[in-house]
Design a protein around this nucleic acid. Structure first.
Lengths: 342, 342
DNA sequence: ATGAAAGCGCTAACAT
DNA sequence: ATGTTAGCGCTTTCAT
């Protein structure tokens, strides 16, 4: 049933080695006649070399594994696209799985990738398996983390500069004359992008000699109703709040809904900036100012890095942390009426 | 460096066969002592069986491949999640790639999957490689299409009932007293979901004895500005239009933007229904009525189907087409003021 | 209850 | 310029 290299060799009247050589482009020493003959037979028989056998022998599978923690967030779709494109253009296949933020699941997936002999792994870590990451790095196994930093561990990674991202958002508010700026953020829990966004928020205020008011820092979960309640409480309190910096794309939708339900207008009553540019940002009412993160680029660079590591396994390449700069996409949600009319 | 079954055998003082048996749960005829001993050594050495060798020998890789055509659309993220979950719980790994709607790329990916000996393939076809699909089906190779139907070809597939989806949307308009209903749709180009949505639109009108007005059928490309121009032309013409059925989630955002720019209100001036429920639908202003499609379910069922085919390769299972029903999520965008005040 | 040995399909060192 | 041969790490039949 399945055609092997031996079948081709027999039919072409040559040895398996010759077929193998030609298959792999080691033409140098072959007669053009032989090459043509073998190629013709391969074509005729529609021969498909078995990558398993090849991989077993050569220790190269041309497979990269990626572990994501959340497929639903469009941010990750872009990252995945970047990784996929890069893999494709470099001739690698991509194995994907979803840890769903569960370290146990992540661990299983990594093990499974190893059994399958993937040549490298890209991961958005759940921060529960540092021992594995450390082990990989020590063993020189091609491994790249994305998005989340791993504390106290020198591994290859591609990250966003989240401090900067928060700073440009808050600075933009300040530049527009807003001073009472609240931040909505998920519990940081050691997740570096969250910690950094909060840190960036603080820094931006301090850089402008403004005091950081703890009551304007709203740490919220993913429950929509609770988020909305927090927004309403904040805006109804005697706290003066002029602007909200919402640090997650879905969270921002909840915030807007709450504001709308209060009968308040963005940006006239309250200015708003969201984190992560999405397809819908510009279509919200009003169009939303967002911190754009180069997600596709992050995926692409991560893939490039693993591939570089794979192609240079002999050399011990020093670990590298790449940091990508976000930028602000200014729309109406963040600009007060006075500016709007200029 | 790498530990093999031979190393384990040596250390445990047994043969490779014994280790292999125990590894694969063929305990029946082994002494408990041997089992324990071998298991202990496996544990101690942290032995990881090489799936390549296993696959080469056993002709089973436990890998499924999926070819998607568009990673960015959140609809596909849900599908992917369904596929991934099902694969995981059934012990399969998932290889993913993106055809980007390009049949040539799709073809390359499929070839590549075959070389890697994937045991089954799930695909959202670009409709350019029917020969391959037919071939797979004839050869009894586990193969399932999703979302798009392949004309004149009996292959396994999981689809949405797009005729029904369009009908419930249009019927909802009609039930609310709206008669002049326009549809915005991408060029059908043989893509079954588009054809069916258009068909469903026509049927719904006819079922209610309304005439289908060709000038209310707007076939548009993906260019935002052109879409907006079309919307404006339509609403500014002396055509009476009471409602718009927008058949794609991104398209709907463009439509809304154009309406807003015209100074018209949804739903008072023009009612609107979009296709595909998304995270942002409920947060638009006004909240958008959408046709919800069970995307996760589609992914899950497709994966279940390939796995079923994989596990029963001997039997020729007749091809099956599964159709999933969408349903309408009613929000304010589709309900005219009169209803709103009830 | 366990072991020996052949072989899955390929590559590569060595031989010619 | 091409062929021979010995594995890669595993499974599995056949022996014992």
């Amino acid at each position: 049933m399945k055609i092997t290299i031996a079948d081709v060799a027999r039919k072409a009247g040559v040895s398996k080695s010759t077929v193998s050589r030609i298959l792999n482009g080691n033409y140098e020493q072959n007669t053009q006649r032989t090459i043509d003959k073998v190629l013709k037979v391969i074509e005729e028989m529609d021969f498909q070399p078995n990558a398993l056998a090849k991989g077993l022998k050569s220790n190269k599978t041309n497979i990269i594994g990626i572990v994501l923690s959340n497929l639903k967030n469009p941010f990750w779709a872009s990252v995945l696209e970047g990784v996929e494109d890069e893999c494709r253009s470099s001739g690698f296949n991509l194995m994907i799985c979803n840890s769903n933020e569960n370290p146990r699941v992540e661990r299983d997936h990594i093990k499974s990738f190893q059994l399958k002999q993937v040549e490298g792994i890209i991961i958005n870590t759940t921060l529960g398996n540092e021992d594995i990451y450390k082990d990989f790095t020590e063993k020189n196994f091609p491994f790249v983390t994305i998005n989340r930093k791993i504390p106290n561990t020198e591994v290859n990674g591609v990250f966003m500069d989240n401090i900067e991202g928060a700073k440009i958002a808050v600075q933009h508010f300040i530049d527009n004359g807003l001073r009472e700026i609240a931040i909505f953020i998920y519990p940081t829990e050691g997740v570096s992008p969250r910690e950094e966004r909060l840190e960036g928020y603080r820094q931006a205020l301090q850089d402008n000699s403004l005091v950081v008011k703890e009551e304007l820092i709203k740490i919220v979960g993913e429950n929509k109703e609770i988020v909305k309640k927090e927004v309403k409480n904040l805006l109804n309190s005697h706290q003066k709040v002029e602007a909200i910096f919402s640090t997650n794309n879905i969270l921002t939708l909840y915030v807007m809904e709450a504001i709308r339900e209060l009968g308040l207008k963005v940006p006239q009553d309250i200015a708003l900036i969201g984190y992560d540019e999405t397809v819908w940002s510009m279509h919200l009412n009003p169009p939303l100012t967002t911190v754009y993160q180069p997600a596709y680029k992050m995926g692409e660079l991560a893939a490039k890095k693993v591939i570089e590591l794979i192609n240079n396994k002999e050399q011990k390449i020093p670990t590298e942390q790449i940091s990508l700069l976000p930028n602000l996409i200014v729309r109406q949600s963040s600009i007060q009426r006075s500016q709007l009319n200029e």
